[in-house]
Each structure stands twice: as structure tokens, then as C-alpha cells.
């Protein structure tokens, strides 16, 4: 069952890597790259998540079933977000933004 062991040095290295990635993410956000910034920041977050998942949460040494749950979670969130966001970004016939005058509130 256990194919790879998480050892203390590995944990320390992962922690340092996470801190480095945090400052990398912080640094790129100061460069003023506009739209690309969000993409880079999220990509770095995904890498950090993978480090936490595989090392801190010991996913490397666990069964496939547990990995499957992670894969499905990731997949469903990505599809939920993509298909939802695709709606306002691709509207042609319908107004892309709601009309504030349509508010039902007094």
C-alpha cells in the first residue's frame, strides 16, 4: 500500500517550497501584468495545493480511491466554474449585465 514515504526532510523542503511560491506569487502581483496576473497567481496556487495534497496530506502513499476523490473534486469545480462563467462572457441576444432598475427591493 505504501509506495513512497513522507519523511521529515521532505516535509521541511515542502514547507520552504510553499513559502518560496508564496513570495513568487506576491512578486508577480507587483509587476502589473494585468489579466495574466490572475492566471499566474492561480497557477501558482494550484502548484501549492498539489504540494500540500501530496506531501502534507500524504496522498503519495495512499490508495487510488483517495486520489480519485481529489481528481473528481477538482474536475467538478473546474467544470462548474467554466460553464457558469461562460454564460455572461458569451451573451449576445440577452443583456450581458442585469439592469439595476429591475431590482425588486424598495
Amino acid at each position: 500500500m505504501i509506495s513512497a514515504h513522507v519523511t521529515t526532510p521532505k516535509l521541511v523542503v515542502s514547507w520552504l517550497a510553499l513559502l518560496v511560491l508564496t513570495f513568487l506569487s506576491f512578486g508577480t502581483s507587483r509587476l502589473g501584468l494585468g489579466e495574466a496576473e490572475l492566471v499566474i497567481a492561480l497557477a501558482i496556487s494550484v502548484v501549492k495545493t498539489l504540494v500540500v495534497l501530496f506531501i502534507f496530506m500524504h496522498l503519495v502513499e495512499q490508495r487510488f480511491a483517495n486520489r480519485l476523490i481529489v481528481i473528481l473534486t477538482f474536475l467538478f469545480i473546474v467544470l462548474l466554474v467554466t460553464l457558469t462563467v461562460a454564460d455572461p462572457l458569451t451573451r449576445k441576444t440577452f443583456p450581458p449585465r442585469p439592469d439595476p432598475a429591475a431590482s425588486p427591493y424598495p
Partner: peptide
């Protein structure tokens, strides 16, 4: 792990709201 997956989807709904409105405005 399954409980955590479920919890993540709870936040996932909010991430969808975030992405939707950030795309809109």
C-alpha cells in the same frame, strides 16, 4: 477524503459566484 471533497464543493459554489461576477465587472 470524501467529506473534504464535499466541503471543497461548498466553497466551489462561491468560487463560481466570484468568477461569474469578476467576469461581468
Amino acid at each position: 477524503w470524501m467529506f473534504l471533497g464535499s466541503e471543497t464543493l461548498l466553497f466551489g459554489a462561491l468560487f463560481a459566484v466570484y468568477a461569474y461576477y469578476r467576469g461581468m465587472y
